[in-house]
């Protein structure tokens, strides 16, 4: 188990409770999507994983070590965090230098740094932009640079905050391909997103957060089965899931392929 969160409570100085006792365990190699309405506490939860937020009470364990005893830069060896807004981090004169920043901070030897940087640029489709100034790229391009700069740190856990926001279809397709590659390498992937279609097609497990609590947690193909809480139903389900419901199917479907298989079954079953 690579991540263990136990009764995590986060209260802001103004008394507002962002997380009201979240418990969550993630195993190595899992792909977990954290979804939920605005203000559910998704981003706050993610910030605990890299130590930029600290528990009011409760415990966060990363790779078997209590995060409370680790600095942000220490946690960066285990957890790579791709922030929602790339402009909060881009500072180097070239894309390649930006991507090499993390590995240098972590003290990797030169040959490993070079190899990781080249790999990260390749899988994010940025090899051709290696010498460009990051700020001259489009928003989608800058977002990919931020992603590459985290990948180059070669962390076992990768956390992505709203990776599809402001991304066009090509960028999303590239991202999906990349996530499949990372999964096959055994990386643990956690994404915070309100893009439920993206989540249904690229993740194995869904954690629904609402009002600072885990409202539902289960395999993606059982999408919200048995969930009764109103905040859960207030946020959007994947298109395909809603279509299945509309056709009166008793159990959820989440992907186009799953839908077509179910459709074929229904068509051939005489009733």
């Amino acid at each position: 188990m690579v991540l263990h969160i136990d009764s995590l409570v986060h209260r802001y100085p103004n008394g507002m409770t962002a997380l009201a006792g979240v418990s969550l365990t993630v195993k190595a190699g899992e792909r977990v999507a954290v979804v939920g309405p605005n203000g559910a506490g998704k981003s706050t939860l993610a910030r605990h994983l890299i130590g930029i937020a600290r528990p009011t009470s409760g415990r966060v364990e990363v790779n078997g070590r209590d995060a409370a005893g680790l600095g942000i830069a220490d946690l960066a060896r285990s957890v790579g965090f791709v922030f929602q807004n790339p402009d909060a981090q881009l500072h180097a004169a070239t894309v390649a230098k930006e991507v090499g920043f993390g590995p240098r901070n972590l003290g990797f030897p030169a040959d490993r740094r070079t190899a990781l940087t080249e790999w990260a640029l390749r899988v994010t489709g940025l090899t051709g932009e290696a010498d460009s100034h990051p700020r001259h790229l489009s928003f989608g391009g800058r977002k990919r640079v931020a992603l590459a700069s985290v990948l180059a740190m070669d962390t076992p856990i990768i956390v992505l905050d709203e990776p599809t926001t402001g991304q066009d279809h090509r960028s999303v397709t590239l991202l999906e391909e990349l996530l499949r590659g990372l999964h096959s390498q055994g990386k643990t992937i956690i994404a915070i997103t309100h893009d439920t279609d993206f989540c249904a097609e690229n993740f194995d497990r869904v954690v629904v957060l609402a009002e600072g609590r885990v409202q539902w947690d289960g395999p993606v193909e059982h999408w919200l089965e048995g969930a009764v809480d109103p905040p859960v139903s207030a946020f959007e389900q994947p298109q395909i899931t809603r279509l299945g419901q509309r056709l009166g199917w008793p159990t959820p479907v989440v992907t186009v392929d799953g839908f077509l298989d179910r459709l074929t079954d229904h068509a051939s079953s005489a009733d």
């Binding site: 066009d168 279809h169 090509r170 999303v172 279609d197 994947p238 298109q239 395909i240 279509l243 186009v256 839908f259 077509l260 459709l263 074929t264 068509a267």
Partner: peptide, 23 residues
């Protein structure tokens, strides 16, 4: 549509693929 960089809706994709299966 996808070539223009726009994601097709899942409804459209599902129906297009269902045509091939006669559904």
């Amino acid at each position: 549509l996808a070539d223009w960089g726009v994601a097709p809706l899942r409804y459209t994709t599902a129906a297009r693929q269902a045509v091939e299966r006669g559904l």
